[in-house]
Write a protein that binds this DNA or RNA. Sequence first.
RNA 1: GGAGAGAUGGCCGAGUCGGCUGAAGGCGCUCGCCUGCUAAGCGAGUGUGGGGCGAAAGUUCCACCGAGGGUUCGAAUCCCUCUCUCUCCGCCA
Length: 424
Amino acid sequence: MLEIKLVREKYGEIEKALSNRGEKMDLPAMMEQDNQRRALLLEIEALRHRRNLVSQEIAAMKKQGVDADAMVTEMRAVSARIKEFDASLATLDETLNNFLMRLPNIPHASVPVGKNSGDNPVRKKVGKVPAFNLEPQAHWTIGENLKILDFERAARIAGARFPLYIGAGARLERALINFMLDVHTGEHGYTEILPPFMVNRSTMTHTGQLPKFEEDLFKLEGWDYFMIPTAEVPLTNIHQGEIIEEDSLPIYYTAYTPCFRSEAGSYGKDTRGLIRQHQFNKVEMVKFATPDTSYDELEKMLANAEAILQRLGLAYQVLTLCTGDMGFSAAKTYDIEVWMPAQGVYREISSCSNCESFQARRADIRFRRKGQKGTELVHTLNGSGLAVGRTVAAILENYQQSDGSVVIPQALQPYMGGMECIVK
RNA sequence: GGAGAGAUGGCCGAGUCGGCUGAAGGCGCUCGCCUGCUAAGCGAGUGUGGGGCGAAAGUUCCACCGAGGGUUCGAAUCCCUCUCUCUCCGCCA
């Protein structure tokens, strides 16, 4: 969310940012609402001021036994008017708030302007793309042949877009989760969290999933609970409503959680395999930082995610998302894409964003600078480190052997009980 | 699920029969004084959000005592609903 004050003061800038994002919103209408609101507020406050003064007089008069009926009658009318005005104000507030809650974040100045994913510049390519003698198999074929993935049975249990890992497949998924958490906590300084997997509406609103993207979420019928689409939601909300001391910043959290997404509107896309599921596992990183350091922290977070891929020996590229492809809450985003040999393309496996104060404003997360009055909003960052299912897919495809087996990356072998290779 | 208790500022904790309580008192914190050092002591200050005026420092007004409604000229104080916390019973992985 942006502040209405900011919209008022930097109107032109925001108008431009919106058009760069390819968003159409009626800003003039919002300004009109804001003007009306402030004018009304002025009137209401004047009335309240008068009421406060006269009420005190009444109190004084009554104490002295003087008759105050005339004033009481007058104030009765004043209160009635305040009530009327309050109702109009509430309507204006609601409209305005509704507007603001649907306004996306302003891209950082360093974000390239572009229309869609085709305009995302490649920042770097890392690692060597493996060469194959034979045509490389898709991960779902490999997984089904090794009997470590079973999409048919998963579909019977739950439906399309659900995973079922068996034996070494399940173990591989768990090994990756443990590996990633160990690296982030042991070497990158993150504190491990195990949060709720369902959250309430306000939590979901704070991070920007609501009100605009409700159709992307799974909601529990009869409850005000939503399944989390990413651990970013509970992790960022850990400090909702808090004022953090500057000393304790930056704060680093990491968590493994399953993620649940309706994938509305993606019918026919990635229908096979582990790429696009209603339920998938992810290890997430979330940071709270001061505005002075948040962009350095973003670079570090990106490096933390990259470290996982490097240790797994997977080739990847990093993109800077352009204005037209960024998520709602982000001011700047890097995507990491891992090499998938079967399709011969890079696929997104991590996304690291600086949301600046966008989420902090919604979630009311502030900090106090040492020795200074007042508070400031913190900056929040989030990044995948990494999407686990897609990592499994990448390992299966990149480490497949001509006999159908899959070699386990060395860094993972301790987590697999010493297993070096998955064979039939 | 049943019965009861509670929710006040960074923390602890007052708040009488509704009226000058943004909120006593204490702790903490900040600045200053004092002091071989430390501790103690003394003095001053110390919430958040919003609006108006101002270039700014600031100033002024409004709101906020879990949340939302209601009663009243006036509510932290009375009434209703909800949320959360705690205790006991039941149930349960």
